[in-house]
Simulated scan of single mutants.
Amino acid sequence: MFLARITGSLVSSHKVEVMTGQKLLIVEPLRVNEKDQSDLQPTGRTFVVVDPLGAGEGEVVLCVQGSSARFTKETKHLPVDAAIVGIVDTVQVGGNTVFKGSE
């Protein structure tokens, strides 16, 4: 699993039938600031993920890759290798809050 921020969306008008109606988002993985563990920093990479939860741009989400992306009821029959499985509320490292979402 990895943390990522949603940076955009993807629209594909031609795709396999089973993917029709699936929301696709662009995410950028995040990591804890190596210097002082004070916040989450972008990695500079991007992934396309399927979103069965209805997350929105700018939100921090929990993603899975590989076969784990097809272990949910919503993604079981989809040809995907990355999916959002949670919307993150808070991240704490060493007793310090490094991310707190909007309430």
Rank of each mutant, 00 (worst) to 15 (best):
Lys35Gln: 15
Gln92Thr: 07
Val98His: 05
Thr43Tyr: 05
Gly86Asp: 15
Ser38Asp: 02
Glu17Leu: 13
Gly86Tyr: 03
Asp36His: 03
Leu40Val: 06
Thr46Pro: 01
Val80Phe: 00
Ser68Trp: 00
Asp36Gln: 05
Phe47Asp: 14
Arg5Met: 01
Arg70Ala: 02
Val60Glu: 13
Val60Trp: 12
Asp51Trp: 00
Ala82Thr: 10
Val93Ser: 10
Glu74Lys: 09
Val80Ser: 01
Phe99His: 15
Glu34Phe: 09
Gln22Asn: 11
Val61His: 08
Gly95Glu: 11
Val50Arg: 02
Lys73Thr: 11
Pro29Thr: 13
Gln37Arg: 13
Lys100Gln: 15
Ala4Arg: 06
Ala82Gly: 06
Ser12Phe: 00
Leu25Arg: 00
Ser102Lys: 11
Val50Trp: 01
Gln65Leu: 12
Pro42Tyr: 05
Ala82Val: 06
Asn96Gln: 15
Phe2Cys: 03
Asp51Ile: 04
His77Gly: 00
Asp51Gln: 01
Thr72Trp: 06
Gly21His: 06
Ile26Asp: 01
Ser67Tyr: 00
Gly101Val: 09
Val18Ala: 10
Gly58Pro: 09
Val88Ala: 09
Thr90Pro: 00
Gly21Val: 12
Leu10Phe: 01
Val61Arg: 07
Asp89Trp: 10
Phe2Asp: 11
Ile87Cys: 10
Ala69Arg: 00
Ser102Met: 05
Val49Lys: 02
Val93Cys: 10
Cys63Phe: 02
Thr90Arg: 14
Val49Leu: 05
Leu30Met: 06
Val61Pro: 11
Ser13Ala: 13
